[in-house]
Each structure stands twice: as structure tokens, then as C-alpha cells.
């Protein structure tokens, strides 16, 4: 049985990628399954999807904990999620990155394929939706399915939903990624720390399952405990504030959905970038253009 785990961000198409690779395997007469991680996360949040491929019937219905192949659709996830947790020793990893595989640090030394899927997607699809390009790189990493069947699966899946032209462009993206992918071995210096999660056992469950503000297993639980999620990693841009232009109208403070805008004592504002998802609403409501959005990684 060949198991694949996808790590992406909401909106990148991780679920679609898992379904397409499963369909490609089915087209070759194999058995396959694909399903997402069911969570409450939204666009931009780290998400997971899983796929299993086998020659015989698959009875396993659990999530993939020890994948043969790991697919990372956004390089920044390496820093915030334990993506390589459970990856098999002889497995391989596919990472969407501009850097060469030998410069990537996954925390485990395995065969690694890096491909700049974002550039390919923007070039061919004119949108940073990387799922189809990453499929091409996956075939390059391991030929458990052929590129032809992946392209056929893309045509079936995307062509049906978005029209034949969209299907063809997406299958071209897979081919381009197959050709441009770079092979190598990644480094294993990073320490993989598994996230701990706490749920009360039935003996611990309080009446009415009500929980007060407290700490369990090293993390805050109860009212207000969600502020330990630093959502600032979701976004692609950050606000830049020019205090000289500000007229202290507080419209940005009102409109920020995350509460990242703080009012100082003199009614100027400051930004808490740990939580900023980069929506750009503060820049939009500013009448004096005191706030501009800057893409992350762009120079000052």
C-alpha cells in the first residue's frame, strides 16, 4: 500500500490534488481512496489531505500517520507545522519551493523533489493554485502512476468542472512541473515537535462540559484560549503604517477582523503582526493612505 499525505493551505487545492491522484490510480485499474482532514480551518490556514493507493482492496480508513510520500504545497508550513512527522525512512518528499532539495530542511533525511509550483501555476493558470503542478512533481518522485494517467485524471476532474480549456491548461502545468522538478536529498537538522492536544477523558469531563480558563498539558484551554493560535502565518502580506499621515480616525481599528490593530494612548495605532492574516481591510478603509500592504518577503 502506498500512502500519501498532503500539507497545504486552505484554498490551494490539497483536497483536489489528493482526489486527482486517486482517480489517476483508479484509471490504471488500481484501488485508491482520498479524503481531507476534517477541521474547522479556513482559507489560508494549514490543512491536510490524504490518499492511499494499492493493488488490492483498501480496508484502512484512518488518517495517514506514516506516509510513504509527503507533499508540502507551501514551503512556509515547514516552519510552523511538524509536516515530516511519521514520514517513512525510505519515503520521499515533494516540496513546493524555489530552493534546491539539498537546501531544504525537513527534519528527516530522505529523497526530496523540489519544484517551483507557484511560478508554474502563475505562468500557466494565472493564479497561485498549485495543486495540478504539484501532481506532476509527485509522478517524478515516484512512478506509482504514470504521467499520462495523471493528465487524464486532471482532464476528467477539472475539464468537467471548469471547461475543457481549463483542464488542458492544468494538465500542461503538471507536465511542466514534471520536467522542471529537481531531485536530491533534503537535510534532517530540524527537530520535529508533534503538537500536543488535550481533550478531557470521560472522568475529567465537568458537568455540562463547561470548562473554565485554565491550562492543561502545557496549553491554555477554556474561554479566550484561542489566542494561542498565532494566525499571522496564514497571510501573504502585512500592513505598513505611516504615523505622519494618520488622522487618528480609528476606522482601521474598527474594521480589523483579527483585532491586530491596537490603539495607543495618543490614539495612534500599532499592529500586532503575530495575528495578521493580511486581508488588507485596514489599508482599504484608510482615508489618508497611511496604511499600505506589503507582500511578505518584499524589501523595505
Amino acid at each position: 500500500m502506498y500512502e500519501i499525505r498532503f500539507h497545504g493551505r486552505g484554498g490551494q487545492g490539497a483536497v483536489m490534488a489528493a482526489q486527482t491522484i486517486a482517480e489517476a490510480a483508479i484509471l490504471e485499474g488500481k484501488q485508491a481512496q482520498a479524503f481531507p482532514f476534517f477541521g474547522a480551518e479556513r482559507r489560508g490556514a494549514p490543512v491536510m489531505a490524504f490518499a492511499r493507493i494499492d493493488d488490492k482492496k483498501i480496508c484502512d480508513k484512518t488518517q495517514v500517520y506514516e506516509p510513504d510520500m509527503l507533499v508540502v504545497m507551501d514551503e512556509s508550513l515547514l516552519d510552523i507545522e511538524p509536516v515530516a512527522a511519521g514520514l517513512k525512512k525510505g519515503g520521499c518528499a515533494v516540496v513546493n519551493s524555489k530552493t534546491a532539495p539539498s537546501d531544504l530542511d525537513l527534519g528527516i533525511k530522505v529523497r526530496c523533489i523540489s519544484v517551483d509550483a507557484t511560478s508554474i501555476a502563475i505562468e500557466l493558470l494565472r493564479a497561485p493554485i498549485v495543486n495540478t503542478s504539484i501532481l506532476g512533481a509527485m509522478v517524478r518522485a515516484n512512478d506509482f502512476v504514470s504521467l499520462e494517467s495523471v493528465q487524464r485524471a486532471i482532464m476528467n476532474r477539472f475539464g468537467e468542472k471548469l471547461g475543457e480549456k481549463a483542464g488542458r491548461v492544468n494538465s500542461d502545468a503538471a507536465k511542466a512541473a514534471y520536467d522542471r522538478a529537481r531531485e536530491g536529498t533534503c537535510r534532517g537538522e530540524r527537530k520535529i515537535v508533534k503538537k500536543n492536544a488535550w481533550l478531557p477523558t470521560w472522568q475529567e469531563t465537568p458537568p455540562g462540559v463547561a470548562i473554565g480558563k485554565t491550562e492543561k498539558a502545557g496549553m491554555a484551554v477554556g474561554p479566550g484560549s484561542m489566542s494561542q493560535n498565532l494566525t499571522g502565518t496564514w497571510g501573504g502580506a502585512n500592513p505598513v503604517y505611516d504615523e505622519q499621515k494618520c488622522i487618528k480616525c480609528q476606522r482601521c481599528w474598527f474594521i480589523c477582523p483579527e483585532g491586530c490593530v491596537h490603539r495607543k494612548d495618543d490614539d495612534h495605532v500599532e499592529f500586532d503582526l503575530r495575528y495578521c492574516k493580511g486581508c488588507g481591510l485596514c489599508a482599504k478603509v484608510c482615508a489618508k493612505e497611511a496604511i499600505t500592504m506589503r507582500k511578505k518577503g518584499a524589501s523595505e
Partner: peptide, 25 residues
Amino acid sequence: NIRTMPQEDHLLNGHGACAGCGVAV
């Protein structure tokens, strides 16, 4: 008005809404 309204948050940051969510605002 928005300049004189209370400033303390009771829906704290770190919630999981999409970027630019109108409900969160």
C-alpha cells in the same frame, strides 16, 4: 462613536475565520 466606544476585546485574536471575514468584524 467609533472613537469613544469601549476598547476592550472580548472576541480575542487567534480565531480561525478567513482573512477579511465580515462576521468577525
